[in-house]
C-alpha cells in the first residue's frame, strides 16, 4: 500500500527529505528562532560583551533530560498510531469473517447476503468518516431505496448501522433462516465491532494532556534560547548555523510525535483509512461473489 523507504543506496532515501509536513509546520518557528539568534549574534559581537558563559555540563545535563522526554513522547505517539492501525485491521478481519459466515449460513440467499455485506461495508465507511471527525449519510451505499432516509439526523452513524445490523440478524433468527448457534456466532462478531469503534473514537477525541505537550515545547524553547550562552567565548558564524539546524532537529522531533499521535487524517503519516476502506470493500465483494463452480459442493 505504501512504499517503504528502501533504496539500494542509503543516501538516495534522502531525496524525500523535504516532502514531509514537518518542514512546513516548523517554518515560522524556524524564522523566529533564527531572528533571535541573529540578534544575539550582533549584540554579542558588536555591542555588549557578555562576561559569562554557561558551563558545558549544564547544557549536557539538560540535553539528557530532553532526550529522555523525547523518547517517551515518541513512544507514546507511536503506540497511539499503532493502536489505530491495529484497530482498523482488526475491524477488517471481523468484517471479513462476518460476511464469510453469513454467506455460508444463509446458504444461497443472495439478496439477504448482499444486504448484510452492504451494511458491513457501510459500517466501515461510517467509521472512516467518524475517525476523520465528521459524518455524512451520503457517503454510504444504498442497498435498498429509502434506506438513507433512515440515516438522516443520526447522532452517531456507526452505532445506527450496528443497531440495524443487530436487528437484521435478529430478524433472520426469528424467521428461522439462522439457527440458534449460527445466530450466537454472528452476534458475537457484531459486539466486537462496537468495541473497536470506541477504541478509534478514544484515539480521535482524546489527544494527550495539553500541559504535557506544552511543557515539552516550553522546555525545548528554553533550551534553544539558552544554548547560545554556552558559546559566548567564540560566537562565530558557524555557531549560528549549528543552532538553527539543531533547533530544527529538536523541534522537528516533537512535531513528528505530534503528527503520529493522531493517526487518522489525510497526510502521509496517517493510516490510509480511505485505501483500507476500498480494500475491505474489494475483499467483501470477493467473498460474496460466487467461487469457481467446481468448488461449490453438491448439496446433500
Amino acid at each position: 500500500m505504501k512504499s517503504r523507504l528502501k533504496d539500494t543506496i542509503w543516501f538516495l532515501d534522502l531525496r524525500h527529505a523535504f516532502r514531509t509536513p514537518t518542514w512546513k509546520a516548523l517554518a515560522l518557528s524556524m524564522v523566529l528562532i533564527s531572528a533571535y539568534y541573529l540578534a544575539l549574534y550582533f549584540l554579542v559581537n558588536h555591542f555588549i560583551n557578555f562576561e559569562f558563559e554557561i558551563p558545558g555540563f549544564v547544557i549536557y545535563s539538560l540535553g539528557y533530560v530532553i532526550a529522555i522526554l523525547f523518547y517517551f513522547r515518541l513512544n507514546n505517539s507511536y503506540y497511539r498510531w499503532n493502536d489505530g492501525n491495529k484497530a482498523m485491521a482488526q475491524l477488517r478481519a471481523l468484517n471479513e469473517s462476518f460476511v464469510m459466515k453469513a454467506r455460508t449460513y444463509l446458504g444461497g440467499d443472495e439478496e439477504e447476503l448482499k444486504f448484510l455485506a452492504t451494511m458491513v461495508k457501510n459500517h466501515y465507511r461510517a467509521l472512516r468518516d467518524l475517525v476523520r471527525g465528521f459524518q455524512n449519510p451520503k457517503n454510504l451505499i444504498e442497498p435498498r431505496p429509502g434506506y438513507s432516509s433512515k440515516m438522516e439526523g443520526s447522532q452517531h452513524l456507526a452505532t445506527r448501522l450496528t443497531s440495524l445490523l443487530v436487528q437484521r440478524v435478529n430478524a433472520l433468527y426469528n424467521d428461522g433462516k439462522l439457527t440458534r448457534i449460527q445466530f450466537l456466532d454472528l452476534s458475537r462478531i457484531i459486539h466486537k465491532n462496537t468495541e473497536i469503534v470506541s477504541t478509534c473514537e478514544a484515539l480521535q477525541d482524546s489527544p494527550p494532556p495539553k500541559t504535557y505537550i506544552f511543557h515539552i515545547r516550553g522546555f525545548i524553547l528554553a533550551y534553544a534560547a539558552m544554548i547560545p550562552f554556552g558559546f559566548m567565548g567564540h560566537f562565530e558564524a558557524w555557531v549560528l548555523l549549528f543552532l538553527v539546524v539543531f533547533f530544527y532537529f529538536y523541534a522537528g522531533l516533537e512535531m513528528v510525535s505530534d503528527e503520529m499521535e493522531d493517526p487518522f487524517g489525510f497526510d502521509e503519516n496517517d493510516i490510509p483509512v480511505a485505501q483500507l476502506t476500498d480494500l475491505v470493500e474489494k475483499r467483501i465483494d470477493a467473498i460474496t461473489s460466487p467461487y469457481p463452480p467446481q468448488y461449490e459442493r453438491p448439496k446433500t
Partner: peptide
Amino acid sequence: IDDASEVVSSCERIHTSPIPFSYAIHLK
C-alpha cells in the same frame, strides 16, 4: 475462523504499513 481472519489481517497490517514516513525521514 474469526481468529484465522484476524491473523491474516494483522500480518497484512505489518506487511503494508511501515513506520510513519516523517519519523523515518527525520531520523535519516
